[in-house]
Design a protein around this nucleic acid. Structure first.
Lengths: 334, 334
DNA sequence: AATTTATGAGAAAACGTTTTCTAATAGCCA
DNA sequence: TGGCTATTAGAAAACGTTTTCTCATAAATT
């Protein structure tokens, strides 16, 4: 019942090939073109993209695999990627791994079965080890996390440096006992932790890094444990925006005030972060640039399949706000 | 170069049809099955989903068209829809209209060309008028906005009642001059405005509704205009979460405090909303239930194409927080 | 003016599957 | 034991396009 290219051709009195050519915008007799366009309109013909993809062997689709679209960082990056893609006539398939390597593997397989033109992937910590096993003829750009893999293109934040920057900022404000909460399931967490520990060591401070699960409630529990200890930290660092939100909740629930009882700083800027209290000090990531760069790299890769893999490392901005005002010590200094 | 079902068949010494049957999990000789599976593994065969869809005539894909995935309401709903869909072996194509009817139309056309099994759509205000023109054989569920269309299934919030609820709450707290900011491009905004106006009228109050564009900066400008007027409103209502955030920003930028200078309430709950000041009073939508219901309706529709269209209206919860504490009048009462 | 080259249209093949159709074998009942 | 049915596998058609191939006609070159 559905109208196909043959029906259009018959109505217009031309061959299917001609209809295809008209639709592809290639040179045809203007009279025929007119008849074809009229026939398309009158039949309400809609090309079947599956058939088109099967025959033409390119999908014009890219896969986007992130941990969780509810994380505003990924939301923002995704949005940019989609806009660029659709502007180029490409579709995007979006998948959430929930930091689960099994899901990630399944979605990567799905992408191959969809014969996507390429994929943009934020791999899980365990997934990043397997990423080098992906066939070279499957173009991939890693975002946000790349681990040690140098085989694929990647666009990353300078996590190490940014975490260190945060530590030094807190140190300058007079904080000494600075604890850090880092995501356990992502390489991002690991890198930020390393930056944190190195900066702490350089300043002669004792690092206290906590690895936090992706599971709900984990961050809250970690905060409670930290702040109920005998020598409570003077400041907390949260390694991403979602965790920062949870830490904030947990601190409030304990009846503590920021920064009076404990200072707070973290990663990822969101519109509300300057509204809570006197604002939250954060490292803002260049989300739009990350998305745009990833798409550009992917398209470049398609043009030059054999070029060497590139790694682009971007810097964030440290937005200093009220949650890290200079410390006011109540008793003896450290 | 890519390995197809024929290659697998040749290696396993069976016909392509048999390979297809094994992969579909249908009954075959166990010896052959074993050989096929071995051949699949050794060749690294990946089925071509385009070919499969073309031949089998079902795409196992649903389209999801929302205004903007960066709006946390849509993010949350999308996430639920995706989870349900993938659990059923279906894919989701996600598109953002940016409240632009032209984009919406284009994406609806795209969905038809993809031969999606069905679509879930949050139509723009102008798009909702055209939605009845969509062929009946294209299953659609409208979410969040349905206007007067009764031809398609829909799952909605009781916008009228919820807006009225917010008005009555503010009235109970002692507020009288209550202004509302409503999205100009969505039917949601229109319905909430109607509820607001009716409730205001019933309480004998003068409504002051402002229609706010989707464009950036529009909400801020509207707030500035309202609060600089000679008789400044005592309370503001924002018709969705994004607008609420912007209103909050604007109020803060003017150096006013909430609720001391002006009270604030709105729609859509987000994790941070209990953290800013003494919390924001909002109507929380049952986002997960909306997503789940939409998917269920869509799947039902596929089973019963000729059943009458259903409209499911859900209630939200009013979360009372600090931004609407009882008014303390400085001078004479109204 | 004759030959080559360029252009454009139709016929038919091809893309990689699933499904229908046909045939063969095994199992069952009388 | 003979015929009938049920089951399973292979051959071939089909899905709706694009693209290659072939041919005819027009344009260009010598």
């Amino acid at each position: 019942m559905t109208v196909g290219i043959k029906d259009v051709a018959r109505l217009a009195g031309v061959s299917p090939a001609t209809v295809s050519r008209v639709l592809a915008g290639r040179a045809v007799d203007s009279d025929m073109q007119e008849r074809v366009l009229a026939a398309v309109k009158s039949t309400g013909y809609r090309p079947n993209l599956s058939a088109r993809r099967l025959r033409s062997q390119h999908s014009n689709t890219i896969g986007l695999i992130v941990a969780d679209i509810r994380n505003p960082f990924f939301t923002a990056v995704s949005r940019t990627i989609e806009d660029v893609a659709y502007a180029r006539g490409m579709r995007v398939i979006l998948c959430n791994t929930d930091e689960d390597p099994a899901k990630e593997e399944m979605y990567l397989r799905l992408m191959q079965e969809e014969r996507v033109t390429g994929a943009i992937l934020a791999p899980t910590r365990r997934g990043v080890e397997k990423v080098d096993a992906i066939p070279k003829d499957f173009p991939i750009v890693l975002i946000d996390r790349a681990g040690t893999s140098r085989q694929h293109d990647s666009v990353l934040l300078d996590n190490h440096a940014m975490a260190a920057l945060l530590v030094r900022h807190l140190h300058e404000q007079g904080y000494r006992r600075i604890a850090g909460l880092f995501g356990a399931a992502s390489t991002t967490g690991a890198e930020r932790r390393a930056g944190y520990e190195q900066a702490m060591a350089q300043l002669g401070l004792d690092p206290e890094a906590v690895l936090v699960d992706h599971a709900p409630g984990a961050a809250e529990a970690a905060v409670a444990r930290l702040l109920q200890a005998t020598s409570r930290p003077e400041a907390l660092i949260a390694s991403n925006g979602v965790m920062l939100t949870r830490v904030l909740h947990a601190v409030r629930d304990m009846g503590l005030v920021i920064p009076g009882d404990v200072a707070l700083a973290g990663f990822d800027n969101e519109p509300w972060m300057e509204l809570v209290g006197d604002g939250l000090t954060v490292i803002e990531q260049p989300v739009a640039e990350i998305g745009r760069t990833a798409m550009t790299m992917l398209l470049d890769r398609l043009d030059h399949p054999d070029a060497a893999a590139r790694r682009i490392v971007l810097d964030g901005r440290c937005l200093v706000r009220g949650s890290s005002t200079p410390i006011r010590r109540t008793s003896a200094a450290a």
